[in-house]
Structure formats: C-alpha cells, structure tokens
Amino acid sequence: MLKHCILGFDYSESWQKTCDRLPSVVQMADIRRLTIVYVVDTTRRMNIEDSEAAAANHLKELATHLSGELGIEVDYEVRRGFAATELNEAARHHNANGIIVLNQSHSAGRALFYGNITLNLARITRVPLLILAADGPVVEPTAPVLLATDGSAPARAAQRCFEGFLKNGRHGLVLWVETEHDEDADIINNLTADIISRHEQVVSRHVKGDAVQQIVKTAEAEQAALVILGKRGTTPIQDLMIGSTAEGVARQSRQPVLLIPANTAF
C-alpha cells in the first residue's frame, strides 16, 4: 500500500512513541522504505541540536537503528523552513506514497490543533497522511480497518484505499454516520452493498448522531488498526478546509487515522 513514506521527526519527548508504533504500522501498511525528515525551523531561535550537522548525525544513527529493527530501507534528510511545507515537498521530491506524523496535541484543544504541523499538512498534502496519536495504543497490525464514508467524492478515494487494505483477507468495517443533513441515503446504501458483495470479510454499520463522535467511538470499540477518511480540498483555496469530520477525527481519535486526498490513485 504505502510502499515509501516520509516520516516526520522532531526532538520532542513524545517522539519515542512514534518509534514504538512503527513496527505495527510498517507491517499494516506494507511499508518498504522510510525517509526520516527533520525540518530546521528558521523562524525560531536555534539550539545546538537544531544545527543541520547535529541533526544529520542524529538522524543517521536513528535510520540505522530503525532499519535493523524494522527490516526495511531507512534513509534521512534535513531540511530548512516551515515543517509542514518541507515535509510535503519531501514527499513530492521522493515521489513518496504517504507521510507519517505524530499528533501530539489532539487532546489539548481545537485551537492548538489548528496551529500545529498535522493540520497544516492535512491542508496541503497531495499524498495520504497517516496520523498517529501520541496517547494512542500500539495497534494489532492484523486488526480490522474502518472506512468512514458519506458517499462523497473524497470518500470514494478513501474507499479505494480501504479496499486495498482488504487484499490479504483483512477484515473491514464500513461506517456511515447519518446526520440530519444527509440526502444521499440510497447512494450510500448502494455503495456499501457493493463493497460487501465483493469482500465477504467486510461488514457495515449505519448509525445516527454526531459523525466525529460516532467514528471515534466505533474505532476505539473495534480497536481498529486504521481509520480511513477522505480529505476534502483539491485546489489551493479548498485546502483551507479539509472537512470538519476529517479534522475532528484526526484531532480526537486515539486509533491511527489515514486521510486520503480526493485525487489519490490506488
């Protein structure tokens, strides 16, 4: 699936949690190569560890360690600038299949999430963005994947990704949260029926209520290996909004979340 991923690195105390989650994530997403990217933020006062030489030495040791632990190719790169922009550019430069980041502030409030690297990446990325919650569990790589769908165009791209994760017989759950604004019940019912007809290991669930709360609740109850959602925004102006449901789930979910841009091909 996500053969080559950019892995965002920082010096935070929480970053070790990313390393703890990588073995299951690598197995689950069939990752064959990681490029660790650290971005020197030129807008902040630099510490010794922020120098490119110091960062490169640290990343070299980390890449060697992770390569041995994960059994895959791991390289590294140091960039300068704004973190979200440079991680996105690294993905473009390396023709990567995805970006992996640790969301350290999902429980600290909406305002903080709006200002952090994760949301900025969600706005601009043209490749799938895999978000790992700092306080989330280490998932079982063979656990079911959850597709949250509303029948929209972004949800169709997410569906293609979801079906890719089912190729090895993995179980899946298609979740439709009906809200008072839904007008496409027949479309979603037909879409769900089509998926189930082609994948006998998939079940569906139709619930009513707040979409973010229901998706987060279901993902945790099912101990989902991954929550897959479509990301709105296919133009620079639309990128300012990734969709309230996608943003809310990315901010609140303790299970890994994979945001899929509408134009992603699988």
Rank of each mutant, 00 (worst) to 15 (best):
T149Q: 05
A221K: 11
H199G: 10
H65G: 10
I117K: 09
Y11M: 04
I124V: 10
S67T: 11
P137F: 05
W176D: 07
R205C: 06
L229I: 05
K3H: 06
K231F: 02
F113Q: 05
K217P: 00
T42L: 14
I196M: 15
L130G: 04
E77N: 15
D210G: 14
D184A: 15
W15F: 12
F165Y: 13
F82I: 13
A155E: 04
T43A: 03
H181I: 12
A246S: 14
R251D: 00
S204L: 10
I6A: 02
E220D: 11
A262I: 10
E49Q: 14
V174M: 11
T235D: 08
S105N: 11
D10F: 06
L66S: 09
S253I: 00
A84Q: 13
M28S: 14
T149D: 03
S12Y: 05
T125C: 04
S253R: 00
Q213F: 12
H93Q: 12
V216N: 07
T125I: 01
N47M: 12
R44P: 01
G68K: 09
R110S: 09
Y76W: 15
V74H: 14
T149C: 07
V101T: 02
D20F: 09
A193P: 08
A54C: 09
N168K: 10
I228Y: 04
L132D: 04
G248F: 11
Y38G: 15
Q223C: 03
E52W: 07
H171M: 03
P141Y: 02
G136T: 00
A111P: 06
N116T: 10
A193C: 08
R33L: 09
Q104K: 12
A158V: 03
I99C: 09
F266P: 10
M1C: 02
